Amino acid sequence: MPQTGYFSDDSMLRRVMRKRAVGLTYGTRALVIGAVHPLLYVGTAENSQHRSTPYTRLALTGRLFEAVFLGTREEADRALAFTRRKHATVSGALPEDAGRAYPAGTRYSALDPNLMFMTMAFTFDSVEATHDLLVGRLTATERADLYQDFVRWAELFGMPRAAAPADHRSFRAEFDVYLASDLPHLTAEARLVGEYLSGQRVAHRLPLPTRGLTSGMALLIQGSLPPRVRELYRMPWDITDELAFRSLVAAVRAAHVTPPLLPRPLQPFLAGPSSALYRRLAVGEKRLVAAGKESMPGVDPRNYRERHAG
């Protein structure tokens, strides 16, 4: 008898996360938007071994999340245990001012319920946005169910239930107000990393087939960002960009029409786990670093204390 995971096959979470258009875009978008929260960004960067290999970290996070989204209980439990071990030691204080609300010395911890909720919030917001754009708009009932599934998902990682708003409508009101406020702030490093992740800045010239794919992904990520976030990144966006974005979105959505418009050999690509593609991303970055190249030129791999030692 096949093992089941923490979510049933007919749950909204599994139905949405099986869509590769979601699985391959939500994580990058969540990191780009999540970087505007200084405690989340600095807390992660200062306690990470992946400052010089950020795409490997993205791939690892994607695989851990997907194990809980789509895996068996055994696979999910391994991912959860690994994450808990890593988070147990993540705590500290901001080494420098990071906007009006976050002066130097502000404490952070991976076990802070509010920071756990904000991690969930950026993830859920990106899943909801990418599904609406690239697959099809969810109904109010589907949104409500998907939100409750994500609250349960965050609880599995240790978030207290009381840390999250009670329902989807309350979540949207709270999160949208937060993004529109003066609380979001990008540190210089967070802006630089976000520029690379969103494709606003390109580190290395890629061969044509890969270059076209990454350019398309960059357009989808940038176009899906709330205007307020693009403003924080000082990201140019004009009518030409908007029209190109809408055309690409329309093409991706058309592929999900029933019956699918893609040729039959390509149809299986629309759905299924994305972990194999995450692994390829990590392997490519490791080869780049092994060849003596920087994954994101200008991003110092050292933490604040190491940079200012002596």
Rank of each mutant, 00 (worst) to 15 (best):
D145V: 05
D176M: 06
G34V: 08
V249Y: 04
P207I: 03
G136K: 08
R172M: 11
S8Y: 09
F7H: 15
F124T: 05
P259W: 06
L58M: 13
A276C: 14
R51G: 02
L186Y: 10
A166L: 07
A255N: 07
D241C: 11
V249A: 02
L288A: 09
R51H: 02
N47A: 03
A203H: 08
T141Y: 01
R302G: 00
F117R: 14
A309V: 14
R172P: 04
T56V: 01
R172S: 07
A163T: 03
R302I: 02
R172V: 01
H168T: 03
P260I: 06
F65H: 10
R246H: 02
T25N: 12
N114H: 12
V16I: 15
I221P: 02
S247A: 02
A67Q: 15
A76K: 09
L213E: 12
L192M: 08
L232F: 01
L197Q: 02
R18A: 06
A81K: 12
A121H: 14
A255G: 13
F245T: 05
V257T: 14
L270Q: 10
G27Y: 04
D9Y: 03
R15C: 00
R161F: 05
H87K: 00
G43Q: 01
Y102D: 07
N303K: 01
T123S: 04
R307N: 04
G71V: 06
S215Y: 10
A121D: 06
H185R: 06
R20K: 11
V249N: 03
L80N: 12
L138N: 07
P184G: 09
R211E: 11
A203L: 12
H131Q: 13
Y233M: 04
R15A: 01
A101H: 15
L220R: 11
E128D: 13
V16H: 11
T123E: 05
T106K: 12
T214Q: 04
R280K: 10
N47D: 13
R253S: 07
Q49T: 11
P95D: 05
R279Y: 13
E242L: 09
E242R: 06
G216H: 05
A144M: 05
T44A: 07
P165E: 09
V283Y: 15
T61G: 13
A154M: 00
Q222P: 08
E128R: 15
R29I: 00
T106H: 11
A30Q: 02
M217C: 10
S295I: 01
Q3H: 10
R305C: 05
K86Y: 01
